[in-house]
Design a binder for these strands. Structure first.
Length: 561
RNA sequence: GCGCUCGUAGCUCAGCUGGAUAGAGCGUCUGACUACGAAUCAGAAGGCCAGGGGUUCGAAUCCCUUCGAGCGUACCA
């Protein structure tokens, strides 16, 4: 637990005790103390911490909030809390001003913990899986996948910081209908490239990349598949194409800074009989019935709008059947918690997926699905409809080439997944120097520069400021910066609990702003020995925190730029 | 039709487990480089938080409703 959290906890407890004491004395009448908030007030001048306790008690106590606040304050023990002053403000907030010395304790903490600073242990080592991107291997990665990639990877990193044993997983949809379509498309392209006039399947994949794939096969094997029996030909083409596509997806994601622990093949679930086994498990539990030759899941019993087909009348399991098996398999592997990142177009799938887990005896709350709104691409002022079938989309590779990995990842991670993103390519390109990511990176480079200069001027940067020196950090800018740094563990905890990486992107922007502000108002490399050492400690701490968060967000922290 | 998500500054977005005067970036306007990096800083202007009702000490936030946008509603995935 960080210093800041310890202080907060202590004050919280003292508030509870004060209210209780007032009740015993007959000054306040309430049955049960409701949960209240102790947090930083919006306006910093108002104090370091504020609570709404008095206002929450108005109903039960039938007193004006300010009167209640007065009573609580009178009964509150202030020693050993770092509280310098408590006062009542506004509609009935109790604001606390802390003794200025508590804050500086964060510097030794950061310098000691280094890249571990910010870690919290809410996960307690539990096994947790984040599955994200899981794009169909029938084409290239597009903007929507890019968003999911940035989101999932950062979330995984945050959860790791929060004490979970995290595994990143990519589910490969290498079975089913779309693979059949893929085969037909490949076959058509193959024959066309070899001069045969064959029609392209209507529901096929029109992407240009498919032609490239086919050409590579031709280069390697020539026309040897023409004479082959149809089924065998398609299978051979698909096998090679899938491998090539997957390799491409993998290397693109690696260039985007994303490395998976597990690439899980859907086909293996069919081959091993796990899909069938899962279906019969559901049958045993009474969730299956037959109608018109197909096997249906009674998903209406599980909170769904209508029942769903699991096994088609032709005997082929649906995508849904495989997906249930897949998620059952995840829990079977021992994950306490499973998080999926899906595009919002799959939202109808959420309730029945959770319901299915419940039917299989798992806690549906252990499966958390984060829906992200799709990315709308704007080019030349117009919306570009993206679709793999039509072959019209901007790929992740192109995005990285044009906007850069850091800017692209930061752009996506800055936004709430629930918020639809309009990605104006022209704007992103033309304004790339104004992208907020550079603001943060510049702060890091600046910090590095100060440390370089310090060394050049003969100052020792391997410092460990003592209490007396740290107490010199008393300007408003220094204190704001220190507070922000002290906030990090709490920020990590909240981001992890709520599964919201964009909070950290906002945090790091705030941190950079506070540093720039400090930098412009006070010099670090000054003659005063004690103050210089204290400020160098602040500089080193800020740099460390920036680097820690940029690492989580998958953005590089340059020493120069 | 029904269901899910969204609607906040000119633009792109935060804030939504109810709290004090609704924030940031871009753009616009004023200032600051003979000081550790001006990719920066200090300041100004800009809002019926889509509209209407309700809940309460208090609503951008919760509930109802209207309007608008996106998505879903296949023996597709």
């Amino acid at each position: 637990m960080s210093l800041y959290e310890k202080i907060k906890d202590k004050i919280y407890v003292h508030l509870e005790e004060a209210a209780n004491l007032a009740r015993v004395k007959g000054q306040l009448a309430y049955d049960e103390l409701p949960p209240f908030v102790l947090e930083e007030p919006r306006e910093r001048q108002l104090g370091d911490l504020a609570t709404n306790l008095a206002m929450i008690l108005t109903k039960q106590c039938r007193k004006a909030p300010r009167d209640i606040a007065n009573i609580i304050l009178e009964n509150m023990e202030l020693t050993d809390t770092w509280i310098a002053k408590g006062e009542i403000a506004g509609p009935g907030f109790i604001n606390f001003h802390l003794d200025s010395s508590w804050l500086t304790g964060v510097i030794p903490e950061v310098l000691l913990l280094e890249d571990k600073y910010g870690s919290v242990d809410i996960g307690k080592g539990q096994k947790l899986q984040v599955e994200f991107v899981s794009a169909n291997p029938t084409g290239l990665l597009h903007m929507g996948n890019a968003r999911g990639a940035a989101l999932g990877d950062s979330l995984a990193a945050i959860l790791t910081m929060a004490g979970y044993d995290v595994s990143r997983e990519f589910y490969i949809n290498d079975a089913g209908n779309q693979i059949h379509n893929f085969a037909l498309s490949l076959e058509a392209r193959y024959l066309q490239q070899l001069g045969h006039d064959v029609p392209f399947p209507e529901a096929g994949y029109h992407g240009e990349d498919l032609i490239k794939t086919v050409r590579m096969i031709i280069e390697k094997d020539g026309d040897k598949y023409i004479s082959m029996e149809e089924e065998l030909r398609r299978e051979s083409l698909v096998r090679q194409a899938l491998e090539e596509k997957l390799q491409d997806i993998k290397s693109t994601l690696e260039d985007f800074g994303i490395f998976y622990d597990e690439w899980f093949s859907e086909q293996t679930l069919h081959d091993s009989g796990y899909v069938r086994d899962t279906t019969s498990e559901l049958e045993k539990k009474g969730y299956i019935y037959e109608k018109e030759g197909a096997l249906w899941l009674k998903s209406t019993l599980l909170g769904d709008e209508k029942d769903e087909v699991l096994i088609r009348s032709n005997g082929v399991p649906t995508y849904f059947a495989a997906d249930i098996a897949y998620h059952r398999h995840k829990f079977h592997r021992g994950f306490h918690k499973v998080i999926n990142i899906w595009g919002a177009d799959h939202h109808g799938h959420v309730a029945r997926m959770k319901g299915s887990m419940q039917a299989l005896g798992y806690n549906p709350d252990s499966l958390q699905i984060i829906l992200m709104q799709l990315v709308r691409l704007i080019q030349g002022g117009e919306v570009v409809k993206m679709s793999k079938r039509s072959g019209q989309y901007i790929t992740l590779r192109e995005l990285m080439d044009e906007v850069g990995k850091d800017a692209a990842r930061f752009y996506f991670i800055l936004r709430d997944p629930d918020s639809p993103v309009e990605f104006d390519l022209d704007l992103a390109k033309s304004q790339s120097a104004d992208n907020p990511v550079y603001y943060v990176q510049y702060a890091h480079a600046r910090l590095c520069s100060i440390l370089r200069q310090a060394t050049e001027q003969g100052y020792d940067t391997h410092i460990n400021p003592d209490k007396k020196q740290l107490s010199l950090l008393s300007s408003a800018e220094e204190r704001e910066l220190l507070k922000k740094i002290a906030d990090l563990p709490g920020e990590i905890a909240t981001s992890a609990k709520m599964a919201e990486p964009h909070r950290l992107a906002r945090y790091v922007l705030d941190l950079a702003a506070l540093f720039h502000s400090f930098y412009n108002s006070q010099r670090v490399l000054i003659e005063d020995n004690d103050l210089r050492i204290a400020r160098l400690g602040l500089v080193k701490s800020t740099k460390q925190v920036l680097a820690n968060i940029l690492g989580i967000l998958g953005v590089s922290a340059p020493e120069r730029m």
